[in-house]
Simulated assay, not measured.
Amino acid sequence: MSKIAITGLTGFVGTNLKKYLSSYEIEPLSVRYVPNQKIEINADTIIHLAGKAHDLKKVSKPNDYYEANCELTKQLFDAFLRSDATVFIFMSTVKAVADKVDGILTEEAVSNPKTHYGIAKQQAEEYILGKKLPEEKRVYILRPCMIHGPENKGNLNLLYQLVSKGLPWPLAAFQNQRSFLSIENLCFLIKNLIENKTISTGIYNCADDEVLSTNEVVQIISMVLNRKNRSIAVPKSIIRGVAKIGDIVRFPLNSETVQKLTENYEVSNKKIKTALKIERLPHTAQYGLERTIKSFIDK
């Protein structure tokens, strides 16, 4: 039986992936950055999930991102090249390319990350792609967009709290389109990349097939909670004015929050579906979001 070593196995993606790959022998690979260390690998496949995520409280030091997301990845990839392992999967992010998207984000887009998180991931990608790869080895750099699934509230928590408390959604005047990624679809893609030896080494975006507006997400949450959708289309000029005040007095509705909730961020998954020769992923974006929201109830 093929052995898979996974870093970050106890995280949200790792725990779900372990269940999904239950037919394989899964081995946790506990790693942290230490200068000049040499990591030993005894597995057929390495899935590198561990890293430092966005710091929402903004208390992290920039160097933390480069050590955890770039330098450690370099050490692990060097270990892969020395080992007998044949598959290396690196969990990068769409933020390694762009924080804002005009149109649809594809793998051909020129990387221009703006955060230390995104820059560190992008530097790790460059290191991996810059190394000569033996013929028998395959490497996949995955760029997921916002991942959701049962128990993982993440960025959906604010919207969930709003609807569950019966409060109105005031930003209905903003029309946007953004991509999501259900954990089930991500696990499906990873399993297929491991098993399909014909898939070329490279970078692959990961996203659900459909895009949703924030207004549609609010509607889905309302439906799952059996609540009336209390969306209000407050004029954009008023919202922006309130947001500017929020920047000064630490009001929940500030410019950054409005930007995150109303921005467009559409990600193409065409490349990976073409490589796998499939027309659709197993689950729709709405199905995945419904499962996620149901898991929040009574928690």
Rank of each mutant, 00 (worst) to 15 (best):
S2V: 12
S2T: 13
I6L: 05
I6D: 00
T7M: 07
G8N: 02
L9S: 08
L9T: 07
T10R: 10
T10K: 11
K19V: 11
S23C: 11
S23P: 08
Y24T: 14
I26P: 05
I26S: 09
V31D: 06
V31I: 13
N36R: 12
Q37N: 10
K38P: 03
K38L: 12
N42D: 14
I46Y: 00
I47F: 02
L49M: 03
K52H: 07
H54A: 13
H54Q: 13
D55Y: 09
Y65K: 05
Y66Q: 04
C70D: 06
T73D: 00
T73G: 01
K74E: 15
F77P: 01
S83R: 07
D84K: 06
V87R: 01
F88E: 02
I89P: 01
S92T: 07
V94D: 01
K95N: 11
K95Y: 10
A96D: 02
A98N: 11
A98P: 04
K100R: 11
G103P: 00
G103W: 00
V110W: 06
N112G: 11
K114R: 13
Q122S: 10
Q123S: 05
E125F: 03
E126M: 09
I128A: 01
I128S: 01
I128W: 01
G130S: 06
G130D: 05
G130Y: 02
E136P: 03
E136N: 12
R138F: 03
Y140I: 07
L142D: 04
K153D: 14
G154I: 09
L156K: 07
N157R: 11
P170A: 15
A173I: 07
A173D: 11
A173P: 04
Q175I: 14
Q175W: 12
Q175A: 15
N176P: 10
R178K: 14
R178E: 12
C187N: 12
F188C: 15
I190Q: 02
N192M: 11
S200W: 00
D208W: 01
D209F: 00
E210W: 05
V211E: 09
V211H: 08
V211K: 08
N215C: 12
V218D: 08
I221S: 03
I221V: 14
S222I: 04
M223K: 14
M223V: 14
L225M: 11
N226K: 04
I232N: 10
A233N: 06
I238L: 15
V242S: 07
K244E: 08
G246H: 00
G246E: 00
R250S: 13
F251L: 13
S255G: 05
E256S: 10
T257K: 09
T257E: 09
T262A: 09
K270I: 14
E279C: 08
T284P: 00
Y287D: 13
G288H: 00
K294T: 15
K299E: 15
